[in-house]
């Protein structure tokens, strides 16, 4: 069994499928009167968040609490971190507190890889810089599986700022592992051709309309305003017109196709409001599935002999 979850590349197909299967069991807990399992009683999970992300932190917190773990939220704001304490010193502090797992969100790519050198417990990457967000990929593939029955063989279009997206990287890697075909779509500034080397069969395309008729899944990425200032694209308006998913584009999709977004959305930029709220959209499910998948990950990392 794996000790850390740093990258979607750490997961082989059997492990990812096991997480999906366990997540399905964990999902039943949400429907019960007592939404709690005693599984991780006595274990301590630290949420070490160097970026504001209430959604992701809350999701991990709920997941850990449903498994009866003790949860410590260590946020960079207002703590010693803000006073310039290094990640290494913070890690030693957490170690001294007896953290069995550290869930880390950090603006620097690779920070979780560094952290494993400084703590004894498991490290779970909850998003590092522009690198990866493996639990997001697990919940996205879980959502695809529950909506479409399978992941293998799906055509998945990931659209937007791939260059800066940890969601895109993790999804491209995991989807390849699970046998789906991925097309990365966006302006060449944000989807450079080098991304065709990410996995053996990932493709890069610049024309969203050419990709949609074949897509079983369209995953829209959040685009950030600061990219416009760095000349990656000319204007919101042009970005939205060329790469935004509106009702007209949705009509090009096969009937069964689903629309995903990791959130938070820029409504009216990368995704039109009526598309986000349509029955094809899995955006709300993704949030619910996030808790189940993170429960499964915590169980997998912490549920055995330490």
């Amino acid at each position: 069994m794996i000790k850390h979850l740093l990258s979607a590349a750490d997961l082989d197909a059997p492990t990812a499928t096991l997480i999906h299967d366990i997540a399905a069991e964990m999902a039943t807990v949400a429907g019960r009167e007592v939404k709690k399992l005693p599984t991780l009683r006595g274990r301590t999970v630290v949420n070490l968040f160097y970026e504001d992300s209430t959604r992701t932190r809350t999701s991990f917190e709920v997941a850990a609490k449903r498994l009866s773990a003790d949860v410590v939220n260590f946020s960079a704001k207002g703590s010693s971190v803000e006073k310039g304490e290094s990640l290494k010193d913070t890690a030693w502090t957490l170690q001294a507190m007896g953290a069995d797992a550290v869930v880390i969100r950090h603006p620097a790519s690779g920070a979780p890889n560094r952290l494993v050198n400084w703590v004894h417990g498991s490290v779970l990457n909850a998003g590092d810089g522009t690198h990866e967000h493996p639990t997001q990929a697990l919940l996205d593939t879980y959502t695809m599986r529950s909506r479409l029955g399978t992941v293998a063989g799906l055509n998945v279009a990931i659209v937007g700022d791939v260059l800066h997206s940890r969601v895109a990287r993790s999804n491209a890697l995991l989807l390849h592992t699970l046998g789906a075909k991925v097309t990365l779509v966006g302006p060449p500034t944000l989807v450079p051709p080098v991304f065709e080397t990410l996995t053996p069969d990932v493709r890069v395309g610049y024309d969203i309309d050419a990709v949609l008729p074949e897509a079983d899944v369209v995953m829209m990425l959040r685009v950030q305003k600061e990219r416009m200032n760095a000349a990656f694209f000319p204007s919101w308006h042009e970005y939205s017109r060329r790469y935004g998913l509106d009702a007209a584009r949705v009509r090009r999709l096969p009937d069964h196709a689903i629309v995903m977004h990791p959130g938070p959305m820029n409504r009216g930029v990368e995704i039109a409001p009526d598309v986000a709220d349509s029955p094809r959209s899995t955006i709300v499910e993704q949030v619910a599935n996030g808790v189940s998948v993170r429960m499964a990950c915590l169980y997998l990392l912490l549920g055995g002999r330490s």
Binding site: H131, R166, R169, F195
Partner: peptide, 15 residues
């Protein structure tokens, strides 16, 4: 910039 721009930087998410 953090490292050589190429396949590895694309994978690692480093500028």
């Amino acid at each position: 910039a953090q490292m050589h721009e190429g396949e590895v930087s694309a994978r690692l998410g480093l500028t």
